[in-house]
């Protein structure tokens, strides 16, 4: 019984994660300019790893592999924002302007 609940929970997490991965990919293709594309890509960089690796963790149970999975997740969550920030900062400094729908300044 308990096994079944864990299995179902893991399936739900994996399927939701896959859905968000695909949505992020579609968004990266549909969005009009670089910064909005980065928003779509950040869905696949933050929420999707949490869900997919969470689902894998439930499959793995308490083993050595779950420690490695947690390490991978932590590294992805720490390095993802750093890489995005480096990319955005480099684009901004090289003069890549964001498109705005309103008449916001800068």
């Amino acid at each position: 019984m308990f096994e079944l609940i864990v299995q179902i929970l893991s399936w739900v997490l994996l399927i939701t994660g896959s859905a968000f991965v695909v949505i992020g990919g579609i968004g990266a293709l549909r969005m009009p300019d670089l910064y909005t594309r980065m928003h779509a890509a950040s869905v696949t960089d933050s929420l999707a790893p949490i869900l997919i690796i969470g689902g894998l963790l439930l499959q793995a149970g308490f083993t050595l592999f779950s420690v490695k999975l947690i390490a991978i997740l932590l590294f992805l969550l720490l390095s993802g924002p750093t890489a995005s920030n480096a990319l955005a900062s480099a684009a901004l400094l090289s003069g890549y302007r964001a498109q705005h729908s309103e008449e916001d300044k800068t």
Binding site: F20, I23, G24, I26, G27, R30, M31, P32, Y35, T36, H39, A40, V43, S46, L47, A98, Q99, H100, S101, E102, D104, T106
Partner: peptide, 19 residues
């Protein structure tokens, strides 16, 4: 993420980017 997914899947792509 739900909010961004809603925006991405919306046919009109209702974004209003601001800085």
């Amino acid at each position: 993420s739900i909010e961004v997914a809603r925006v991405v899947l919306h046919p009109n792509l209702p974004i209003s980017p601001r800085t």
